[in-house]
Structures are given as C-alpha cells and as structure tokens.
C-alpha cells in the first residue's frame, strides 16, 4: 500500500518535472519572438536617431521630401500607403467574401475545385509580374477608359477629378486589390467551411432560403475568422512594394483625386535606399520604415479589438 503510494508520487513528480521543462521551453520560444520584435524595433529607432533628432514630430506631418535640401517629411508616403491600401480593402473584401460564399455554398464541387485553384494561383503570381501587368495593361486601360468614364459620371466628387494619367493611386489600389483578393477569399472560405452543417440545417429547417441561411447561420459563425482574413489582406497591402511602385507614379504629393500619382512608404524605401548617401537621408528612410511598422502594429491591435468585440456576442456564451 505504502509502496504503491510512493510509486505514484514518484510518477507524479517526474510528470510534473516534464511538464515544467516543457513549459519553460515553450515559454523561452515565445519570449524569443518578443525579443526579436523589440530588438528590431530598437535597432530601427537607433538608426533613425539623426532624423528623429532633427525633425521630431514634424517628420510625420511634413509634406516636403527633398533629399537635395535634406528636407524630409513623410506625410505624402503615409497618405499614399493608406489610400491605396484602404482602396484595395474596399474592393477586395466584398469581392473576396463573395468568392468564398460562392465557392462554399453555391458551386458544385467541380466548379469549386477549379475556381478555388485559380483564386489560389492569384497568390502565387510574383508581384513584379503584377507590376508589369499594371504598367502595360491596367494603367493604359485606366487612362483611356476607366478614369475618363469615372470623371464623366462622378466628376462632381473630388476623388474623380483631374487629368487621367493611368499611373495613379487608383492603379495602386486596384493592383493591391487583386493581390490581396486570394488571401481574403481563401481565409474566408476556410472559416466558412468550418461552420458545422448542423448550423446550416437549423436555418434551412426554419424555412430559410439559401441566402437567409448564409446570413443567419454561416456568416455570424464565421465572422471573426473572416475579419481576420481581411486584416491579413490589409497587412499585405500596406507592405507590398514592387507592384505598387510600378504603377503608383512615385510622386510625393498629397492630392485628393484618385487619378493623381502618389508614393507609398514601401516604394520610397525600396527606390531611394541605394542613393541615400548622407546619414540624415538614410536615417529618414529608416524612420519612415519605422512609421510603417507602427501603422501595421496599430491596425493589428485595432483588428484584435474588433475581433474580440464581435466574438463576444451575447452575454454568457463562451464561443470557441
């Protein structure tokens, strides 16, 4: 009796020892990610120091970017990045969700696998290829057809005024929309596929049409996952460099028209890093990278809060 108790105690001890080691190990790994984040952040702040010291907060709100006179303001790049990314989001989120709904709930399995594959292929196209397509097809098409058309019908809105140039924020936003579409579509599709069939049947049995079933049973169940997919798409749009720089026009201006050329943070870093000779110039580019880092961080925190608030739903329920 006593002996067996001893045995079990011993067993417990080794088990808990194993647990502890395992916990420590995983904790260490988790901490290393945090450490890496902090380290990168610190390094960037350190390298950006000359620019931070010289311009202070005016760096963020300054509109002039003149390397010759060593005058650096980041606002045009922040503006270009945000406008093109949100434009992409506004287009790609509904389309991606529509694609996911169609593939999951409407399409036959054959159509689903073919179109599903094609959508995923969109993600496999290198961004420089998107850029080429943008230069030779998208931009001319915008210049000759879309922008004049928009100007004609919606010209009273400042967004659609000015000379149609093709290389514009509109082009940047559209190309980003195509690029983030597969992310949003495939993540939405996955979370919708994970909705238990009992949920669909519950709605159908009450006399719901297919669309009503999607609205009351599928989308609410999947909404936090869908939101996550959309935020992932936004993250990708904010950081995308090559395709955007090829079509956005690369001019550090802040103009209200979507037809106007602009510049994005990622694009200016990639384009000017090699020619940045002075310390101040270099540190300004690093600081602008730091701003991009900050924007994605803020948006992610915001997204997390949004996901939390939709996940919570009615009181008392702990939904997975």
């Amino acid at each position: 009796m006593e002996e067996s108790e001893n045995m079990s105690n011993k067993k417990k001890l080794t088990a808990s020892l194993g647990d502890k080691t395992f916990r420590l190990l995983t904790l260490l790994m988790a901490m290393s990610v945090l450490a890496l984040m902090v380290w990168i952040g610190w390094q960037m702040v350190d390298s950006a120091r000359p620019s931070i010291a010289k311009f202070g907060f005016t760096f963020v709100i300054g509109r002039v970017w003149d390397p010759v006179k060593e005058q650096f303001g980041a606002l045009p790049f922040i503006y270009g990045t945000l406008v093109t990314s949100f434009l992409a989001l506004i287009i790609a989120a509904p389309v991606g969700l529509g694609v996911a709904i169609f593939l999951n709930e409407m399409a036959t399995s054959k159509v689903r696998s073919v179109i599903g594959f094609l959508v995923e292929m969109l993600a496999a196209i290198p961004s420089v290829v998107y850029g080429l397509w943008g230069i030779f097809i998208l931009a001319p098409w915008l210049r000759e057809t879309v922008e004049p058309g928009l100007a004609k019908w919606f010209g009273f809105i400042p967004l659609f005024q000015g000379t149609p140039l093709g290389f514009s924020m509109l082009a940047g936003g559209l190309i980003l929309a195509v690029m983030i579409l597969p992310t949003i579509a495939s993540i939405s599709r996955e979370v919708m596929a994970a909705v238990p069939n009992e949920q669909r049947e519950a709605a159908l049995a009450l006399g719901a049409t297919k669309w009503e079933m999607i609205r009351i049973a599928v989308l609410p169940y999947a909404k936090s996952g869908i939101l996550g997919g959309v935020m992932l798409g936004l993250g990708r749009a904010l950081g995308e460099t090559m395709a955007v720089t090829m079509v956005i026009g690369n001019r550090p201006d802040i103009l209200s028209s979507l037809f106007a050329p602009a510049y994005s943070i990622a694009a200016v870093i990639a384009n000017e890093f090699t020619e940045a000779t002075s310390d101040l110039y270099l540190s300004a580019l690093v600081e602008i990278g730091l701003i991009l880092f900050g924007i994605t961080l803020i948006l992610n925190v915001f997204a997390r809060l949004l996901v939390w608030s939709v996940e919570r739903g009615p009181k008392g329920g702990i939904s997975s």
């Binding site: 009992e198 949920q199 519950a202 009450l206 009351i216 609410p220 739903g313 009615p314 009181k315």
Partner: peptide, 16 residues
C-alpha cells in the same frame, strides 16, 4: 413541416 434535430443546434451568435 418543422423539425427538431437529434443534436441540439442553437445559433451560437444569437441570444436565447
């Protein structure tokens, strides 16, 4: 023709 299923399936995002 209404139906009650073998496995309870309330809508989780909705209140009672």
């Amino acid at each position: 023709v209404g139906m009650v299923f073998q496995k309870a399936n309330p809508f989780p995002s909705m209140s009672i």
